[in-house]
């Protein structure tokens, strides 16, 4: 069954943008394997004839009229910004390959 290898956890860390430390990777490997083992049981009953449930209370989407409401001010929008410049949020260098 699914077992987490070191490489897999490193890769998942990349996907989830978390720079996991060596120690964390090692510890997580054990923990995740134990969790995975226990939760793999869902496959026992999830047969093809069962429909998946995404929302527990079935609803149809309410559609919002296309009417504008007061937006945040620029000051409010930027109030939590770790770094800002000229009314904008500052990102460190973005690599084209990202």
């Amino acid at each position: 069954m699914s077992t987490f290898t070191r490489e897999e956890i490193t890769h998942l860390g990349d996907l989830a943008r978390i720079a996991l430390t060596e120690k964390e990777i090692v510890r997580m490997q054990d923990e995740l394997n134990s969790i995975a083992e226990s939760i793999n049981t869902v496959q026992e009953v999830a047969t093809d004839d069962v429909q998946p449930t995404a929302n527990p209370v079935p609803l149809e989407a309410y559609l919002r009229p296309d009417v504008a409401q007061k937006p945040l001010t620029q000051e409010q929008a930027l109030s939590g910004a770790p770094v800002k410049e000229d009314g904008m949020f500052v990102a460190p260098r973005i690599l084209g390959e990202e």
Binding site: E85, F89, V90, A91, R93
Partner: peptide
């Protein structure tokens, strides 16, 4: 251009 830029400003 994105290449060689020092940082980027983001307007959402």
């Amino acid at each position: 251009r994105i290449e060689g830029a020092d940082h980027s400003l983001v307007d959402y």
